Structure formats: structure tokens, C-alpha cells
Amino acid sequence: MTLHIIGGKWKGIIIDILSNNSVRFNELKRLIPGISQRMLTLQLRELEADGIVKRKVENTIPKKVEYSLTEQGEKLSPIIASMRIWGIQYMG
């Protein structure tokens, strides 16, 4: 079940970035080189549907949308951090 939720190329990276703080969509896109706007939107929607990410919209002009981890998402942070550390050691 866990791999279904965090599997794929981008979800772990998104969760890792959001583990530090709330991030706006364009900033998130900038922090993930190579991800398209469409793919980022899709991944965020899937993570939101799974209860990992929450989306906060402020009705300003232009609209301000921030993404952050839910309580369940925060529980995934140590797992993702461990995977990142393992990957760095493996590649190093």
C-alpha cells in the first residue's frame, strides 16, 4: 500500500520538499527540475486524494495556492528521508 501511495518518479521528491514547509505551486515546480506542469498537477492531485498533501487556496488576485503535508503525510517524511539518505550513499 505504501509503495502505491509514494511510488513513481515524483511523489517521493514532492513529499520530501513539502516536509520542510508549505510551498506554492510554481516554487515546487522550480524545485523539481524536469517535471512538467501537467505531471506536477497530476501527482499533487493523487497525493491529495490519498490524504498525504493538503491544498490551501487564498482568494487573492492572482490566487495563491500552497501545498503542505497532512498529518499522514508528515508520518511519511522520515521514510522518504531515509530513502533519500540510502540513495545518496548508494550512488556515492
Rank of each mutant, 00 (worst) to 15 (best):
K11I: 08
G12T: 11
I13D: 07
I14S: 04
I15D: 04
I15M: 05
I15E: 04
I17L: 12
L18M: 10
L18Y: 11
N20T: 12
N20G: 11
N21A: 11
N21H: 13
N21R: 14
V23L: 06
F25P: 01
K29S: 14
P33I: 02
I35Y: 03
I35M: 03
I35T: 02
Q37P: 01
R38V: 12
R38D: 06
T41H: 13
T41F: 15
T41I: 10
T41Y: 14
Q43A: 08
Q43K: 13
E46N: 10
L47I: 14
L47P: 02
E48G: 10
E48P: 07
A49N: 05
A49I: 11
A49T: 07
A49H: 02
D50P: 01
D50M: 11
D50K: 06
G51N: 08
V53A: 04
V53D: 01
K54T: 15
K54D: 09
K54P: 02
K54L: 15
R55C: 13
R55I: 14
K56N: 13
K56I: 15
V57C: 08
V57A: 14
E58V: 15
E58A: 15
E58L: 15
N59C: 09
N59S: 14
I61S: 14
I61G: 06
P62N: 10
P62Q: 12
K63E: 14
K63P: 06
K64T: 15
K64Y: 10
K64G: 07
V65Y: 12
V65E: 10
E66N: 13
Y67H: 09
Y67R: 05
Y67N: 03
S68P: 05
S68W: 01
S68D: 07
T70I: 06
T70Q: 04
E71F: 03
G73L: 07
G73C: 05
E74H: 05
E74Y: 03
K75I: 07
K75H: 01
K75G: 02
L76W: 00
L76T: 10
S77D: 03
S77P: 00
I79T: 05
I79H: 02
I79F: 07
I79V: 13
I80W: 00
I80F: 00
I80A: 01
A81K: 08
A81L: 04
S82R: 03
M83V: 15
R84W: 00
I85K: 00
